[in-house]
Design a protein around this nucleic acid. Structure first.
Length: 829
RNA sequence: GCGAGAGUGGCGAAACUGGCAGACGCACCAGACUUAGGAUCUGGCGCCGAAAGGCUUGGGGGUUCGAGUCCCCCCUCUCGCACCA
């Protein structure tokens, strides 16, 4: 570092400038938002991070900076901008890490947060720190529990047994993504399936609205598509297949005893299908191994084989069940009548049919479904063709024929000859008349399991009482505090560690006062993050989850920026919770995020960053060496914000050089002289370009445009004039806020540059009077001509003939001339 | 397998509704100022060619006066979902 000597003007020292302005912003409360009164509210939200022990990742900073630029730009446009920050600090991630290093998460998390906060503050974000929140804070999770109660009261929270992945070595429940090839990702032990009672939210009740509302949202199209696929609407029919030769066994004596009579009516297998048109090709039925009818319909001879298969399916872990594509199954011995053909077809069970989708049973049409075809070939079941293309092909012996466009039904009784669409409608109508079918819309979406048999999360606010049953904890008794216990490791029971702490576990029933037992599951972190945007504006309020007046004023969120890894779950759950609160009359809108943009991923030197590769960029190190302003601007210059970019270590020097030149331009600027007309034109073009690029998140091209202007302004060691530099400082400010403030002050600014507005370009000054037009001969570019902007075709032709290098290509009389004013002339000879 | 996105110089990337492909930056080359340069400034820089000129946006076809951009087929990569009936 070289120090200024003598009269030489002070050089640009980012460390000094950035320290000065961070202090100044704090002292003057520059970034504190007037939530109650500020005009034109603009809520610029970014996804809050998980405060990991490793500290801030460049990926975080890339996202935050992109949001900050957008927010600062909105402020410069006259909005009152609210840019809050918080931490998503509950969850298995923190807990596992705490267990690994042997420090209690309650101690670890505040430490990580302090570190994170300090790193984020160095980046110069326009964050209003007076509204900081952490999901682990009792004053926050009190209201997370309140959200649970709102759902509970509306009948949207319920308990049921569900299968989970269980690692017998780590003694813990695993998420599906923690199971690799049937084994625990951490210890390699083979994962088992366990059935546990879990709390669910009825998000499926909202599937239709969650899908329909997507059309009204200004979101990245990729994100909307991901949500549509996740919701997975499919229209079809439920069709009833009566079971033949029913054997009623004594297993259902309990029912018989209560009703006092044996119902001889044969059971019916209901299947869901999207292809009712193929019913004449349904040659067998398949039930999921867990299907309730299995025990009832299985014949004596098949009973032991079926039992073995059912047990095997029950013990297999969830992931390998879904990833093993080899078809297996067993025959139950029972038959059902195909309501279309009237003929008996066998009933099988197989694990390729999932209990959780549709009715847990299918009609198998091996001729026109690949999975059924595969199964039919393994077990030698009949394959019948009932759909054929117009040309009569579509052989189904070797593979299923799944095309539908332009195809017609064959071998389908009186439906033969109909198109697939006609057949679907006609067959469902026919069967519906005999109450054998009903049109049904099914969703792939399943209910949201919020139970975690772990320690580090908000306890679910429920008490079990022998007399009163399941009792919600009243709002006045919230929060149900997570006890600070040292023994929080999960054990073999599959029950949360909280159950081992009697003084917490036993609690009076809120209704009758007798001793009850607390729910020991904690809730999913996705619940913490499904409402935090409502909390921010009134994060300090102890008496309410959110101030309704402020929510009305500030929400829905105007701009939300975050990673596409949350395209589905976080965003869907947030929409769901908001919709429920809307239905409960607690907020006025259904959709929390008006506009959402997903940012891209940062890689380094073409490779994904990871701890194991040791190629992770440490933001502190870069900020120390280059300054936060250069670092921010460089991150934005890497590539299109929504696509991410490649962090190349040497690349930052170009951006730093640009800021150095900006600094010197202000120092060298000639005062009291108007801008040079040519420079001024470029300036106004640049103002327009940057002002158009920022709202599109086209930050890389905005930076390029400013660099280009710099090159114009300083071309040939030209000394810039103050009026040429001043607006550039304003344009740069969202990207490099500290240096912009310093230069603004050096130029005589008395307020923050962020309260000085955005420069306005003059459309009259943007246009060039002379343009360069491309000259093509027979469609081949041969050169350019410089003509007046208003030049006619004749003027342009004259200019072409006037240039020998161009004229020589025109070897004959022009047959045709294409003239695009101001752009190009194409002469066909 | 299904869905989404992307393939452009040595590298990161630009290119709005089809109209000069490669803006801006890195790296590299040459020069200036320098005791010095990992500082600063000036100029050059897609490929082949001495030049004229030719070739060039993953590959192959097509539409058009004109295609990175539109249409069809194929290849590669990244991400998401994964037996969803």
């Amino acid at each position: 570092m070289h120090l200024p000597t003598g009269d030489e003007p002070a050089g640009y020292d980012p460390a000094v400038v950035e320290r000065k302005w961070r202090a100044r912003w704090d002292a003057a409360a520059t970034n504190v938002t007037d939530l109650a009164g500020g005009p034109r509210p603009f809520y610029a939200l970014m996804m809050f991070p998980y405060p990991s022990a490793e500290g801030l990742h460049v990926g975080n900073l890339f996202a935050f900076t992109g949001n900050d630029i957008y927010g600062r730009f909105q402020r410069l446009q006259g909005h009152t901008v609210f840019e809050p920050f918080g931490y998503d600090a509950f969850g298995i991630h923190s807990e596992n890490y705490a267990i690994k290093v042997g420090v209690h998460p309650a101690e670890l998390i505040p430490r990580n947060i302090a570190n994170f906060r300090q790193q984020v503050q160095r980046a110069g974000l326009m964050v209003d720190w007076t509204h900081e929140l952490s999901t682990t804070d009792p004053s926050y999770y009190k209201w997370t529990q309140w959200v649970f109660l709102q759902l509970y009261q509306r009948g949207l929270a319920y308990k049921k047994k569900a299968a989970v992945n269980w690692c017998p070595f780590d003694k813990t429940v695993l998420a599906n993504e923690q199971v690799i090839a049937g084994a625990c990702e951490r210890c390699g032990t083979i994962v088992e399936q366990r059935l546990l009672e879990q709390w669910f939210f009825r998000i499926t009740d909202y599937a239709g609205r969650l899908l329909a509302n997507l059309d009204t949202l200004d979101w990245s199209e990729t994100t909307k598509t991901a949500q549509r696929n996740w919701i997975g609407k499919s229209e079809g029919a439920e069709i009833a297949f009566p079971v033949l030769d029913v054997m009623v066994y004594g297993t259902s004596t309990a029912n018989t005893a209560t009703t006092g009579e044996v119902t001889a009516a044969p059971p019916t297998v209901k299947v869901f299908t999207t292809r009712p048109d193929t019913i004449f090709g349904a040659t067998y039925l398949v039930l999921a191994p867990e299907h309730p009818l299995v025990a009832q319909i299985t014949g004596d001879e098949q009973r032991s084989a079926v039992q073995v298969y059912v047990n095997a399916a029950a013990s297999q872990d969830l992931v390998s069940r879904k990833t093993t594509k080899d078809k297996t199954g067993v025959f139950t011995g029972a038959y059902a009548t195909n309501p279309a053909t009237g003929r008996p077809i066998p009933i099988w069970i197989a694990d390729y049919v999932l209990m959780e989708y549709g009715t847990g049973a299918i009609m198998a049409v091996p001729g026109h479904d690949e999975r059924d075809h595969e199964f039919a070939r393994v077990y030698d079941l009949p394959i019948v063709q009932v759909v054929a293309p117009a040309d009569g092909g579509g052989d189904v012996s070797a593979a299923a024929f799944t095309d539908t466009a332009g195809c017609r039904l064959v071998s389908s009784g009186r439906f033969t000859g109909m198109t697939v669409e006609e057949g679907k409608a006609a067959i469902v109508a026919e069967l519906a008349a005999h109450t054998a079918a009903v049109p049904v819309v099914n969703y792939r979406l399943y209910d949201w399991c919020i139970s975690r048999q772990r320690y580090w999360g908000p306890p679910i606010p429920i008490v079990y009482c022998d007399d009163c049953g399941t009792v919600p904890v009243p709002e006045s008794q919230l929060p149900v505090l997570l006890p600070l216990i040292d023994d929080f490791r999960p054990d073999d029971s599959g029950i949360s560690p909280l159950a081992r702490h009697d003084e917490w576990y036993h609690t009076p029933c809120p209704q009758c006062g007798k001793q009850g037992r607390r729910e020991t599951d904690v809730s999913d972190t996705f619940l913490d993050s499904a409402w935090y945007f409502l909390r921010y504006p009134s994060s300090e309020r102890e008496d309410v989850p959110f101030d309704r007046t402020l929510v009305k004023r500030w929400l829905p969120v105007h701009s939300y920026i975050g990673g596409n890894e949350h395209a589905v779950l976080h965003l869907l759950y947030s929409r769901f919770v908001t919709m429920v609160l809307h239905d409960a009359g607690l907020v006025d809108f259904e959709e929390p995020f008006t506009r959402f943009r997903a940012h891209g991923l940062i890689v380094r030197e073409g490779a994904k960053m990871s701890k194991s590769k040791g190629n992770v960029v440490n933001p502190d190190q870069y900020i120390d060496e280059w300054g936060a302003d250069a670092f921010r601007t460089y991150l934005m210059f890497l590539g299109p914000f929504e696509e991410g970019g490649d962090f190349r270590d040497k690349g930052i020097s170009g951006v730093k050089r640009f800021l150095d030149r900006l600094w010197r331009s202000v120092q060298d600027a000639e005062r009291g002289r108007p801008a040079d007309p040519d420079v001024q034109r470029k300036l106004h073009q640049t103002i327009r370009k940057v002002g158009e690029d920022i709202p599109r998140l086209s930050y890389n091209t905005a930076v390029a445009a400013m660099m280009e202007y710099m090159n114009t302004m300083r071309a040939g060691e030209r000394r810039p004039r103050l009026e040429e530099v001043r607006p550039l400082v304003q344009l740069v400010s969202p990207f490099a806020p500290h240096i912009a403030e310093e230069l603004w002050e050096m130029m005589g600014g008395t307020t923050s540059v962020f309260d000085a507005g955005w420069p306005v370009y003059d459309p009259a000054l943007v246009t060039e009077d002379r343009v360069t037009m491309a000259v093509q001969v027979n469609g081949k570019t041969r050169g350019t001509i410089s003509v007046a902007k208003s030049a006619s075709q004749d003027d342009a032709m004259a200019a072409v003939h006037g240039d020998p290098a161009l004229a020589k290509f025109i070897t004959g009389a022009p047959k045709r001339v294409i003239f695009v004013p101001g752009r190009l002339i194409n002469v066909i000879v």
